[in-house]
Structures are given as structure tokens and as C-alpha cells.
């Protein structure tokens, strides 16, 4: 088995497991970037999504000013292509992380790249909560905080899991691009050690690993989305 593998995938084996170019390292880098930017982008996205829904015209605290501010920020960041964001945000990254390259530096553009996309999805998910439930909660004397947590976020939780799954999957795609600023990861392996060196076996394995990762995320996401849903029989 091992010898068969090293016969057909010589360059894959040569990269090794640990070390700068190793498979273990690049898998870790991809997971690291996906995880932390999902956390930071997720928090930002939920905050923006919630504010957009609350301050909207027919929200529970209509406020044109804050709605417009958040709406514009989300729209503008969403309009910037990610590759350009990487370059554009570099000076800011330098200030915050202390370096412009590497896995940690990539978290800033990844977070900023993913949050507007997620914020819009959160907004749609929250708006799908039946207005009647909001009114019933209001009629019970619920506070704004109660309505955010116990009605909006709780009632749309299955939908939120679904859009989070979609977001994490597209985030995995973005981490591959982050390889461009030396962030490493499976995407970087596929390009730098596979494509650029004409080592197609490396590209193939890196791609398969990314696909497996995406499948896992999708399956776990679907499981919880279903498990958490009690909206209808």
C-alpha cells in the first residue's frame, strides 16, 4: 500500500507530514484560518445582522441612521473582491498583528471578507422569523434583549446553522486564496508545490483534502440544522 502510494504519488510523499511544506502543517493552517475567521467573522456578522433587523423600518427599534450606517458598511465590504481586500487591508493588518504575512495576518482580511456575506445571510434568516412571534413576545412585555436572544436568534437557529455552513464552506475557499500572502494552507500547497512545480499529484491530493473538509462541514451542518428544527412537522 505504502509503496504503491509512493510509486504513483512521489511528490506527495516527499512533502512529508511536518515541516514548513508538510501536509500536517498545511491542514493545520487551513483549519486554523477557517476556525478563527469563522469565529470573528461570525460574531461581527451576527452583530451586524441583528442591528440591521432591529433598526429596519419595521423592526422593533426603527432607526434610519444606524440602519444606513450598517447597511452601507456591509454593502461596501461585500463589494470588494477578496484578492483586492488582501492587498488593500495590508497596512491595517500590519498595525493589528504586527506583520503582513502568514497565517495570523490572514485572519484580518478573512474576517473582513466573510462578515458582510454572513451578515446578509443572518439578516435574511432573522427576517424569516414570523412577525407574529415578535408581537406575541412584545405583548408579554419582553425586553429588546429577550426578543433578540429568545425570539430572533433562538427561533431562526436552524436557519442560522444552515447559513453558517454555507459561509464556512465559502470561507474555506477564501483561505485557499489567502495563500497568496504566505498564509499557507491546502490552497497554497496546491498552487505553490503542485501547480507551479508541475507536480500534479500534489494538486490532486490537496484538492481531495479540501473537498473532504467541505463535505465534513456540510454533513455536520446538515445534521445540526435538522436536529435543531422544530418549526413544522
Amino acid at each position: 500500500m505504502i509503496s504503491w502510494f509512493s510509486k504513483y504519488f512521489p511528490n506527495v510523499v516527499q512533502l512529508g507530514w511536518s515541516g514548513d511544506a508538510g501536509w500536517g502543517t498545511s491542514i493545520f493552517q487551513t483549519l486554523f484560518m477557517t476556525f478563527w475567521s469563522a469565529i470573528f467573522g461570525g460574531i461581527l456578522g451576527i452583530i451586524f445582522g441583528v442591528i440591521l433587523v432591529l433598526t429596519n423600518e419595521d423592526g422593533i427599534r426603527p432607526n434610519k441612521f444606524w440602519f444606513n450606517v450598517c447597511d452601507k458598511i456591509v454593502s461596501i465590504f461585500r463589494a470588494v473582491p477578496f484578492v483586492i481586500m488582501l492587498a488593500f487591508i495590508a497596512p491595517v493588518t500590519q498595525k493589528i498583528v504586527g506583520t503582513q504575512i502568514g497565517m495570523k495576518a490572514a485572519l484580518i482580511p478573512l474576517t473582513l471578507g466573510v462578515f458582510p456575506f454572513y451578515a446578509r445571510q443572518v439578516q435574511v434568516a432573522l427576517e424569516s422569523v414570523d412577525q407574529g412571534k415578535i408581537e406575541a413576545a412584545q405583548s408579554l412585555g419582553a425586553t429588546v434583549k429577550d426578543i433578540i436572544f429568545d425570539v430572533y436568534l433562538s427561533e431562526s437557529r436552524s436557519e442560522l446553522v444552515r447559513v453558517s455552513t454555507v459561509t464556512i464552506i465559502s470561507l474555506i475557499g477564501l483561505t485557499a486564496m489567502a495563500g497568496a500572502i504566505g498564509a499557507g494552507g491546502l490552497g497554497n500547497t496546491a498552487i505553490a508545490y503542485g501547480y507551479n512545480r508541475f507536480d500534479n499529484d500534489v494538486t490532486l491530493v490537496a484538492t481531495v483534502l479540501v473537498i473532504i473538509l467541505i463535505f465534513i462541514v456540510q454533513i455536520v451542518g446538515d445534521f445540526f440544522a435538522k436536529r435543531l428544527n422544530h418549526q413544522s412537522r
Partner: peptide, 29 residues
């Protein structure tokens, strides 16, 4: 908010919270 707690309201389509149990719906109030 405090005054509303003295005015109960029920609706045509019930408007219960679907993601929590019956007893948690009451506890929410």
C-alpha cells in the same frame, strides 16, 4: 414593557416559540 404584562394577548396563529418546549414557552413570559 411592565404595563404590557398586565395585558395578555392571544392570536389567530398562536405565535408560540417553536424551538422551545411548551413549559419553556410559559417560562419565557
Amino acid at each position: 414593557q411592565v404595563e404590557r404584562r398586565k395585558i395578555g394577548m392571544i392570536f389567530q396563529d398562536f405565535n408560540l416559540l417553536n424551538e422551545v418546549t411548551v413549559v419553556e414557552n410559559v417560562a419565557f413570559a
